[in-house]
């Protein structure tokens, strides 16, 4: 984990400018990393920001610290999914894998994004709200967060992880198109119960013009229609043909 060697630190405070989550404090003489705020993204280490080399790394001392670093540092590969960054597939390879099929809606809830970070206790609240609304969460072989859930039908996380802060983590799942309104209503309710932000992505099969009429339910809920999208252009060879 990242730490500042007090014997080397001269208190210049340059490092504070480079912290992605403002986890570096100053006690009047020396800088220090607040372990409860630090997400182990290692930006301060990779950018070599300290002119005295005072920022050092020590071994991550438990599974949750390793998970925290894995989710916060995109250079790492997740050991289960094998994918870099936060280890999810969402729409990226849907033309090959067919994970989200016609009539289904995938959810990619990017907890803590942009930039505020997320305590896992808040990720749990959102995951549980989605489960109660009928969303089936993606299992651990495709979604790192699910590895912390003893039972993915509830969204509840193991107790020991709840006070760890991550730069972000994605809750993935899917439901039938006719259940989309209920799931979005659940998200609207839970957004006031957490202490951070999340970005919402809806994954859908579309026609050749990029349309899917199911998105019309946004109007009923007062949610603006999306103007941005991540478009899988269908050039991947489907699994059945690969």
């Amino acid at each position: 984990m990242a730490r500042i060697n007090a014997e080397k630190c001269v208190g210049c405070r340059i490092c504070q400018t480079y912290c992605s989550v403002e986890a570096i404090g100053f006690d009047g003489q020396k800088c220090f990393i607040d372990p409860d705020q630090c997400v182990e993204c290692y930006v301060c280490l990779r950018q070599k920001v300290c002119p005295r080399g005072a920022i050092e790394v020590s071994p991550l001392d438990n599974f949750y610290k390793e998970f925290q670093h894995m989710m916060s540092d995109p250079v790492e590969n997740h050991p289960v999914t094998g994918v870099t960054g936060r280890g999810t597939e969402e729409v990226k390879t849907n033309d090959v894998s067919g994970r989200v099929k016609r009539g289904e809606v995938g959810f990619a809830i990017d907890m803590g994004r942009p930039g505020l970070g997320v305590y896992l206790r808040d990720a749990e609240k959102v995951a549980m709200a989605l489960c109660k609304a009928g969303v089936k969460l993606t299992p651990a072989e495709h979604s790192p967060l699910a590895a912390l859930m003893p039972d993915i039908t509830t969204g509840k996380l193991v107790e020991d992880c709840l006070n760890y802060r991550l730069l972000s983590v994605i809750i993935e799942g899917k439901c039938r198109e006719e259940e989309l309104g209920k799931a979005l209503a659940a998200l609207k309710e839970v957004e006031s119960q957490i202490d951070t932000v999340f970005s919402v992505g809806l994954i859908m099969r579309v026609d050749e013009n990029g349309q899917n009429p199911a998105i019309g339910c946004l109007d009923d809920l007062g949610i603006p229609r999306p103007h941005r999208g991540k478009v899988n252009v269908g050039l991947g060879r489907p699994l059945a043909e690969a």
Binding site: F198, S199, G229, V231
Partner: peptide, 15 residues
Amino acid sequence: VKPHSINFSLGVWGR
């Protein structure tokens, strides 16, 4: 090319 699927952004929610 014909789009296969889209991840639609519904923006930022919460605090």
